[in-house]
C-alpha cells in the first residue's frame, strides 16, 4: 500500500491534469472512500493486484481525459498489462475501483465493455478463422447487424492493408499481421475508448504509420486512446498525455511536456525509473 503522503502527491498531480470538470475533492484518507472522475474516459482509484507473493500493481490512481491520446510507459514487469487488464474487465482487481465514462467497470461490466475496444497483449485469438471471419465475429458479438459489420470489416481491412490476406487463416499470419487483425477486432464496434496494449510491436513502419493516422483521426473526432508501449520516441511524437508506471505505481503523469520537463521522454523515463547501467558489456563480449 502506498504511504498516504505519496498517494496524496500523486493524486494531486493527476487531478491537476484532469480535463475540464471539477476535480473530486481531495480525500483525506485512501480507499475505500475514493471517488472517480466521472467525466474522464478512464478513471482508476487505488488499484492493486497481487499474484501470490508478487505485488503486480500497488495502488494506481489515474485519470485519462476524454479526447486524449494517452501513453502508458514503464519498464518490463511494471504492471502495465495487469493494469490495463483490470481496467477493461478482464482481470479482477484485489482492491480499487475503475470507471469508464463514469460507468463502474466491475459493477456494470457489460455496459462498460460496450464503451471500450481492447487490443490485449499475450492472449490468443480465435485463429482458426480467416482474418475476415475473425473481425466479422467480433462485430457480430457486439450485436451489430451483418450489413453494418460487412461495411466496417471491408473498411478496416483496407485501412490496415490486410485485404490480400483477408481469406487466410489467422493462424498462418505473421506476428505483425496478427497484431493488425486484433486491432481491427478492437475497432469494429466503434468504441468510445480504445485500450491498446503494445499495438506497434512487430508491425512494419508503413503499417504503423497508417495505424497512427487512424488513431489520430479517431482522437480528433472525440475518441480516447490509451496505448502502452516501450517506444519512447513513438509515445513522445504520437501521444499528448503520458503516465510512467514503475513497480506497480504511477511515478509521473500528465501532458507529455509536463512529464518530460524539458528533456526527451526517454531521458526523463530513465531518470524516473532508474536502473540504467553505465558500464560497458562484459569484457568477453568485446569482439575487437
Amino acid at each position: 500500500m502506498p504511504e498516504p503522503t505519496e498517494a496524496e502527491s500523486i493524486r494531486e498531480r493527476i487531478n491537476a491534469n484532469a480535463q475540464a470538470a471539477p476535480p473530486p475533492a481531495p480525500q483525506p484518507s485512501p480507499p475505500p472512500t475514493l471517488q472517480g472522475n466521472a467525466s474522464a474516459a478512464l478513471s482508476i482509484r487505488g488499484l492493486g493486484k497481487r499474484f501470490g507473493e508478487t505485488v503486480a500493481v500497488n495502488g494506481i490512481n489515474l485519470d485519462v481525459p476524454v479526447g486524449s491520446f494517452y501513453g502508458l510507459v514503464g519498464p518490463n514487469g511494471a504492471g502495465k498489462t495487469t493494469t490495463l487488464s483490470m481496467a477493461t474487465g478482464l482481470l479482477r482487481p484485489d482492491v480499487g475501483k475503475i470507471w469508464i465514462q463514469g460507468v463502474d467497470v466491475w459493477q456494470n461490466p457489460l455496459e462498460a465493455k460496450r464503451l471500450v475496444g481492447i487490443l490485449a497483449d499475450g492472449v490468443r485469438l480465435f485463429d482458426r478463422l480467416s482474418g475476415e471471419q475473425l473481425v466479422t465475429y467480433s462485430g457480430l458479438l457486439s450485436g451489430m447487424t451483418r450489413d453494418t459489420v460487412a461495411e466496417r470489416v471491408a473498411d478496416l481491412l483496407r485501412l490496415l492493408d490486410l485485404q490480400d490476406a483477408a481469406g487466410n487463416l489467422v493462424v498462418d499470419y505473421s506476428a505483425g499481421m496478427t497484431k493488425k487483425i486484433a486491432l481491427a477486432c478492437a475497432l469494429v464496434h466503434a468504441p468510445r475508448l480504445l485500450v491498446l496494449d503494445e499495438p506497434f510491436e512487430s508491425v512494419d513502419p508503413v503499417s504503423a504509420a497508417n495505424i497512427r493516422d487512424i488513431l489520430q483521426g479517431y482522437v480528433r473526432s472525440g475518441g480516447t486512446v490509451i496505448v502502452s508501449s516501450h517506444a519512447m520516441d513513438l509515445v513522445q511524437r504520437m501521444c499528448d498525455h503520458v503516465a510512467v508506471i514503475a513497480a506497480g505505481r504511477v511515478v509521473a503523469a500528465g501532458t507529455i511536456d509536463e512529464v518530460r520537463a524539458g528533456s526527451t521522454l526517454e531521458e526523463r523515463f530513465v531518470q524516473l525509473v532508474g536502473g540504467r547501467h553505465h558500464a560497458e558489456g562484459p569484457a568477453w563480449l568485446n569482439i575487437s
Binding site: 480467416s130 475476415e132 471471419q133 466479422t136 465475429y137 451483418r146 490476406a165 483477408a166 481469406g167 487466410n168
Partner: peptide, 19 residues
C-alpha cells in the same frame, strides 16, 4: 499458408445476426 479466398464468410454469412 493456403491460397486466400477473399470475401468468403463461411458460416458467418448464414447464422442469425446475434451474438
Amino acid at each position: 499458408a493456403r491460397a486466400s479466398t477473399h470475401g468468403k464468410l463461411g458460416l458467418f454469412a448464414v447464422v442469425p445476426e446475434t451474438p
